[in-house]
Every structure is written in structure tokens, then in C-alpha cells.
């Protein structure tokens, strides 16, 4: 049998494939069924938060920041309660990261405020003198993509039955409704900010990236 395989590339390929695929099936599938249920009380992201999460995703914040607090005392002391699987139920993609060049952010909303983030994103060294994080001043002038965030929320609602517009859930509604809702949320955040341009933009009805990002970071609790 073995010798025959060596000479028959097609069946050989099938053999290789079965070996590597079967491992995946047994390793992944059972955990799969378990891990996807949300913890009690978890609400889907609002459109503004989702727009902020997309900035986090597109800028690859995960290259330096993890969102996974491991069950060690040193980690819970530093970052807060251990991360639970169900807390990530609405994260597509997951944003755990793999390297902490900067600190973990899974519960950053508990101990950092809007104005802290505002100063820090504009110039990290002004808040943490030894910081090596790059500044992101362009987030104060570029506008957040609310429409894409709405499209994403609508997609997960349709395809994965994420509970938008459900009782006690997050309201989504139509594109116009969610634009208006995002602006309301943005106004609350902008009220805590100092930057003139940002305030003006929100007053005009536009939402700079920084506002969306802060909405997302504040939600991480």
C-alpha cells in the first residue's frame, strides 16, 4: 500500500490532505460549539463603537496591544478581571493580539477617560513621557466611516443573527436613524474633549475618527 502511494500522486495528495484536515476537525470543532455564546447582558456594538472598532482593526492596533487578560494575579492586578470567552461573542474578527509592546486594552474603559485618550492619541509622550507609541494626529481630521459600520452591523444582524433591534439589545434601525444615533453619541463624547476642530466637526454633523475610536475604547470594560 505504502509503495503504491509513492507512485500515485493523486491518491498520495488525498492521503496527505486527509491527515492534515482530520487533525483540524478534531481540534477545532468541539471547542467551536462551546465558545461562541455571549455572556449575559452583553450588547452588540453601537454603530459608532463599531466604526471605532474598525479603525482599531484597520490601523492594526493589535500589533502592539492585546485584549486578553490571562488568569494570573499579576495580570488581574494590572488590567482587571480575567477575560471570559463569552465577552468576545460579537467580535468579528477577534482582536486579542499576540504581542504586548503596549499594555492590554481589554478593560481600558474602566481606568482611562475620554480626555486621557484625546491627549494620548494626539501626543502619547505628553501623557506618558517614556512612551514609544506613535501619535495619530490624523485621526482628529479624518472622518470616521459610519456607513461602513452600519453596513457591518446590518450584515451581522442578517447573516449571524446578532441581536440588533432586539428587546434590551442595541438599536440599529435604518441608515438614517443610525447616522443620527451615532451623531448623538458623538456629541456626548465631544463634550468631554478640548480639540476645537473636533468639536466644530461634530457641531457640523460630522464625526472625526478619534471620536469613534474613543467611543470604542470607552466601551472596553
Amino acid at each position: 500500500m505504502f509503495h503504491w502511494l509513492e507512485k500515485n500522486p493523486f491518491f498520495f495528495a488525498v492521503g496527505v490532505f486527509l491527515v492534515i484536515a482530520f487533525a483540524g476537525v478534531i481540534e477545532i470543532l468541539p471547542s467551536f460549539a462551546e465558545a461562541s455564546r455571549p455572556v449575559v447582558g452583553l450588547k452588540p456594538y453601537t454603530v459608532l463603537e463599531l466604526a471605532g472598532k474598525n479603525i482599531y482593526k484597520n490601523e492594526n492596533c493589535i500589533t502592539c496591544h492585546s485584549q486578553l487578560i490571562r488568569p494570573f494575579k499579576s495580570e488581574t492586578d494590572r488590567y482587571g478581571q480575567v477575560s471570559l470567552s463569552g465577552e468576545y461573542a460579537y467580535d468579528r474578527p477577534f482582536l486579542w493580539g499576540s504581542r504586548r509592546i503596549g499594555p492590554d486594552l481589554h478593560r481600558v474603559g474602566n481606568y482611562r477617560s475620554t480626555d486621557w485618550h484625546e491627549n494620548h492619541m494626539m501626543d502619547p509622550k505628553s501623557v506618558v513621557p517614556q512612551s514609544i507609541m506613535p501619535a495619530y494626529p490624523y485621526m482628529f481630521t479624518k472622518m470616521a466611516d459610519i456607513d461602513t459600520a452600519y453596513a457591518e452591523a446590518l450584515t451581522v444582524k442578517k447573516v449571524f443573527a446578532t441581536p440588533y433591534d432586539a428587546p434590551n439589545g442595541t438599536k440599529l434601525g435604518t441608515l438614517e436613524e443610525s447616522r443620527a444615533a451615532a451623531l448623538e453619541e458623538a456629541k456626548v463624547i465631544a463634550a468631554d474633549m478640548k480639540n476645537k476642530e473636533v468639536k466644530d466637526a461634530v457641531a457640523r454633523g460630522e464625526i472625526p475618527q478619534i471620536v469613534a475610536l474613543i467611543a470604542y475604547l470607552n466601551r472596553l470594560k
Binding site: 471547542s31 467551536f32 477577534f94 461602513t148 453596513a151 450584515t155 442578517k158
Partner: peptide, 24 residues
């Protein structure tokens, strides 16, 4: 899926949270 709203490049992962991490 949303009928032409937002950026054409954006997509969501088929898997969420921990499952996405497992597959990744």
C-alpha cells in the same frame, strides 16, 4: 449583504471572538 452601503473593501469574519481566535 447590506445592499451597497459603505466601503466595498470591508468584510466581517465568519467566526466570532474565541472561535475566530481558534481558527486564526
Amino acid at each position: 449583504v447590506s445592499g451597497g452601503i459603505g466601503s466595498i473593501m470591508n468584510s466581517v469574519s465568519m467566526y466570532s471572538g474565541t472561535n475566530d481566535a481558534l481558527v486564526q
